[in-house]
Design a protein around this nucleic acid. Structure first.
Length: 587
RNA sequence: GCGUUCGUAGCUCAGCUGGAUAGAGCGCCGGACUUCGAAUCCGUAGGCCGAAGGUUCGAAUCCUUCCGAGCGCACCA
């Protein structure tokens, strides 16, 4: 909405700039592009156009040029609504906020939860792969960052019109899986999740830890694990049975965690089925001369020309590697469901791997290889330093969620809101999720981050619950309005009454929301949405704190402010769904 | 060593397709609840934006070098 206004002014000013420059210095074919900015202070207007570059061409001061442009445009009979201001070397526009508010109100009311969405990716299919846990241990904090990013990106891309397919590739085979199996075989006395009362993924994880301890004492442990892997590959019935049993335990646990954290997928893939993929593709590439074979029989790709070194694609015994199966899996997925883009949400430690993977696919001649994207994210560290599984400092996902939930519940009870909140368990969980997702998504994905548990549960300041609180306050305000001032609803909405500085700022911010959704989609960056949410909430908090809505001086003003509050409410709701923050009417 | 990501307030983070005095939160100190729920709001203090050069009318933002940190550099995944 704001974009249209900006573009209108921009092209108008551009035209007149071109005219002036042509008159003064003759046919300048390439003018520098005019950039639109936001003035640092509201009283300077709403849109700013710096004129330095043009003034230089004309050999005059920018303020003089600004003045000339202003006079010239003001002389026009039909020009857009709004006011021109000269502010030093800038030509600024003070937009007509009342007409913007009127249009915005109609748009938001009509679009509802669709406000902010756009069709830029209409008809485009996007696969997004994330989570991809191993079946030998429960989820930890690192996975949570991955899952938050994956879920959020999927929602953002949908809001941009894409047909999104969320996929999860479960790493359910390999030596590391055999390790927990082996330890279980040796030390378990056949305990089960049922007999022990331990959640399946945690039970299996215990044996993975057990293996590490055992391997320290018994040097043959690693060798035994390798032997078990061999048996697995041969389909040994005893090993297969154990594998199946333990994988089921883990998966049951993981499904439970996903459910609790609001994470879902459209398709699951299993490494036990995909690990042999890609071999044929590599051999085909070998035939085509894209790859080469070493004397020992291994197949390689030489990526030195793009500074990526040489990489093995097939072992000398002809078996696949991690990269081989990734090549095969990508090709298979494109056959199954021809996509326009494929995003892999994977930690930054695998950047090199993905560069190689994408290059290999490109060399195999797949045009779509260019649409592959590694959404890389940094490590999650603790205030004390890195999480170390050996030192037991890994933050378990289930435990973290449980403790956040307990704290939220404590807070609700401390405020005596048990009755008002309704389902206290549900509400506490929703607050915990809001806190977690916001905390994890507010940081730029590529950066490493420090997760401070104490801070994430504080619920004060720049946090998820702060945003949820805004929603709850608005809900209760609107409920009160409906029960006490229904008759005011009948009054017409007069946007010109919203003339306070904060009201103007709120309206502009609300009008900017669609641009945020578009940018987050184009740049694959959920943190743009969290940043926007915080700006909106902060501005709104101050506004309703300082200015009564239900007790505004006149019914007409009550009506106008209620309209504004409803717009804020709708945008909060819409943005919440993009970053995994549950909306709560009461908390 | 090579590649890559990053160095902004005491701490955690924004701002980075160059533009008007560098912003939040936490913490510190001080205010505001007979007023739409104080999980809130307001204010004070706190920065040679890692360092040095360069490009530019203008650089936290772009380029180079250096310093410091993370992560890669397996016929592991």
């Amino acid at each position: 909405m704001l974009e249209n206004i900006r573009d209108t002014w921009k092209s108008l000013i551009e035209t007149h700039l071109a005219h002036i420059i042509e008159q003064e210095v003759g046919g300048q074919s390439t003018l520098p592009p005019l950039v639109a900015q936001v003035p640092p202070k509201p009283e300077m207007g709403d849109i700013a156009f710096p004129l330095f570059a043009y003034a230089q061409l004309l050999h005059i001061g920018a303020p003089i040029l600004a003045k000339r442009l202003k006079e010239r445009i003001e002389a026009l009979d039909d020009r857009p609504t709004g006011e021109l201001l000269v502010s030093g070397p800038y030509l600024n526009i003070k937009i007509d906020v009342a007409s913007l508010a009127t249009a915005l109100n109609a748009t938001i009311q009509e679009a509802g939860e669709g406000y902010g969405a756009n069709g830029s990716l209409d008809g485009k299919r996007v696969v997004i792969e994330f989570s991809c846990p191993n079946t030998n241990k429960p989820l930890h904090l690192g996975h949570m960052r991955n899952d938050s990013l994956g879920m959020s990106m999927a929602a953002i891309l949908k809001a941009n019109g894409a047909d999104v397919r969320k996929v999860n590739l479960i790493n359910n085979r390999g030596v590391h899986i055999c390790k927990s199996m082996l330890a279980y075989q040796k030390f378990s006395n056949n305990e089960t999740p049922q007999s022990s009362g331990i959640k399946g993924d945690h039970l299996v994880g215990n044996y993975y830890v057990k293996f590490a301890q055992w391997a320290k004492e018994d040097p043959t442990a690693e060798e035994q694990a390798q032997q078990m892997l061999k048996k697995w590959e041969e389909g040994d019935s005893e090993v297969m049975a154990l594998w199946q049993r333990m994988n089921e335990w883990t998966m049951a646990g993981l499904y439970e965690s996903y459910e609790a954290m609001g994470i879902s997928f459209d398709a699951y893939y299993w490494e036990s089925e995909t690990y042999t993929y890609g071999k044929d593709e590599i051999l085909k590439g070998l035939d085509e001369g894209v790859f080469y074979r070493e004397e020992d029989g291994s197949v390689w790709v030489d990526l030195c020309d793009i500074k990526l070194d040489k990489k093995v694609l097939l072992r000398s015994d002809g078996t696949s590697l991690y990269i081989t199966q990734d090549v095969g899996t990508a090709i298979m997925r494109h056959k199954d469901w021809p996509f326009d883009a494929h995003i892999y949400v994977v930690g930054s430690e695998q950047q090199y791997h993905f560069k190689v993977l994408f290059s290999v696919l490109e060399r195999l001649g797949y045009q779509w290889a260019k649409s592959l994207y590694h959404l890389s994210y940094g490590m999650v560290n603790l205030p004390e330093g890195k999480m170390k599984s050996r030192e037991g400092t890994v933050v378990d996902a289930d435990e973290l969620l449980a403790s956040l939930t307990a704290l939220a519940e404590e807070e609700i009870r401390a405020k005596g809101r048990e009755e008002l909140v309704g389902d206290i368990a549900h509400t506490s969980r929703a607050i915990a999720l809001g806190a977690l997702n916001y905390y994890l998504l507010q940081v730029t994905a590529t950066k490493d981050m420090i997760f401070n548990p104490a801070e994430s549960i504080s619920f004060n300041g720049n946090t998820g619950p702060y945003l949820q609180y805004m929603g709850a306050r608005i809900s209760s305000m609107l409920a009160k309005f409906h029960s006490e001032q229904r008759e005011v609803e009948a009054l017409p909405f007069d946007a010109s009454l919203l003339s306070l500085s904060d009201e103007r700022e709120l309206i502009k911010l609300l009008a900017r929301y669609p641009e945020v959704v578009a940018k987050a989609g184009a740049e694959y960056d959920p943190s743009l949405v969290t940043a926007y949410l915080y700006d909106l909430s902060k501005l709104f908090s101050r506004y309703y704190h300082d200015n009564p809505v239900l007790k505004a001086p006149s019914p007409a003003l009550v009506r106008a402010r209620i309209a504004l509050v409803r717009m804020v409410d709708q945008v909060l709701k819409n943005a919440f769904t993009l970053v995994g923050i549950p909306y709560l009417a009461s908390m």
